[in-house]
């Protein structure tokens, strides 16, 4: 298995309690910054319906899908409110030279 750190965006491009979309090699991700400033990258599409989490609402460590209000824990990916039931993937994330990077295992 090959591991690769992928640069998602500048650290300053995601405000606190917000999320931005990042597309890479046909995949889409949600780059989330929680209220404490910690960033995490997760899969971009909701596991329930066809909606991008980057249009959703971030409250603490929770992100809410904009289409059906399903919720996920940003730190673990766990689905915390229906209609989301299946956990989403959360990637190991770091700040490196003011860039938000996440570890992708191929």
């Amino acid at each position: 298995m090959a591991e690769e750190w992928i640069v998602a965006c500048d650290e300053t491009s995601v405000a606190k309690d917000d999320v931005v979309r990042f597309d890479h090699l046909g995949a889409t991700y949600a780059v989330v910054r929680m209220s404490d400033g910690v960033c995490n990258v997760m899969d971009g599409l909701c596991t329930h319906g066809k909606a991008h989490l980057a249009e959703g609402f971030v409250d603490g460590a929770t992100i809410e899908c904009p289409k059906h209000n399903g919720r996920f824990n940003v730190l673990t990916g766990e689905a915390t409110a229906t209609p989301a039931r299946v956990a989403t993937r959360v990637y190991q994330t770091r700040i490196n030279n003011s860039k938000i990077e996440f570890l992708k295992v191929n």
């Binding site: 319906g49 289409k67 059906h68 229906t82 209609p83």
Partner: peptide
């Protein structure tokens, strides 16, 4: 109705 309403929005 929670699920039917999710469908209504989809």
């Amino acid at each position: 109705w929670r699920w039917s309403h999710a469908r209504h929005h989809s």
